[in-house]
């Protein structure tokens, strides 16, 4: 029996819609788990806390904090193929709209100007929290990616076809 390909899904600053699109593959996803894919890491779906080395790493979302960038710089040697999964990872996506505003404006809007905020409760949170990146860039600014699959999120059927192709690539390289 052929070895299953190992797959990890790692999210950065994201909405998790790409993971839901994967769940929406439905029976196709379960068929892949039957004989082609060994899902080893996906924090939305499972409690595994880390992954060692994988055949395919799918990255969703954008790097919004310095911490995210540090994470991205470590993944290249852990994955044979890296996929920028979804429009955020590929282009910056909707969170990238934040680039249109000064960081101070983003924070003040949320924590000082919201009409529902009570007087005297307007301190911008800073305790134990990691710093924001100056701007949002596609993830290939930080790590070399092998494939990009845009879509917000990629439709489940497109995603299924895409995975089929990448899985073929993994087995071809094995021969």
């Amino acid at each position: 029996m052929k070895r299953k390909a190992t797959l990890a899904i790692q999210d950065l600053c994201a909405c998790d819609g790409c993971e839901v699109a994967m769940a929406d593959m439905g029976h196709v996803l379960l068929d892949l788990l039957d004989d082609k894919v060994d899902l080893v890491y996906a924090p939305l779906f499972m409690s595994a806390r880390d992954y060692g080395e994988v055949d395919i790493l799918m990255l969703t979302g954008v790097a919004r904090t310095e911490e995210d960038i540090a994470d991205l710089r470590q993944v290249r040697q852990r994955a044979r193929y890296i996929v920028a999964f979804g429009s955020c990872a590929t282009f910056g996506g909707i969170p990238g709209l934040a680039n249109l505003h000064e960081q101070a404006t983003l924070l003040e809007t949320a924590y000082q100007n919201a009409p529902s905020l009570r007087t005297g409760e307007k301190t911008i949170p800073d305790e134990l929290l990691s710093a924001l990146t100056g701007e949002i860039l596609p993830i290939n600014a930080y790590v070399d990616v092998d494939f990009s699959l845009p879509g917000c999120p990629p439709p489940p059927r497109l995603l299924a076809d895409f995975l089929e192709r990448v899985l073929k690539q993994v087995t071809l390289k094995e021969k």
């Binding site: 600053c13 919004r64 904090t65 969170p95 709209l97 934040a98 249109l100 505003h101 404006t105 983003l106 809007t109 949320a110 919201a114 134990l128 929290l129 990691s130 924001l132």
Partner: peptide, 12 residues
């Protein structure tokens, strides 16, 4: 509980 994300929807 620390929620560790920020995106800025209300601003953008």
């Amino acid at each position: 509980a620390q929620l560790l994300e920020f995106r800025g929807f209300e601003a953008f």
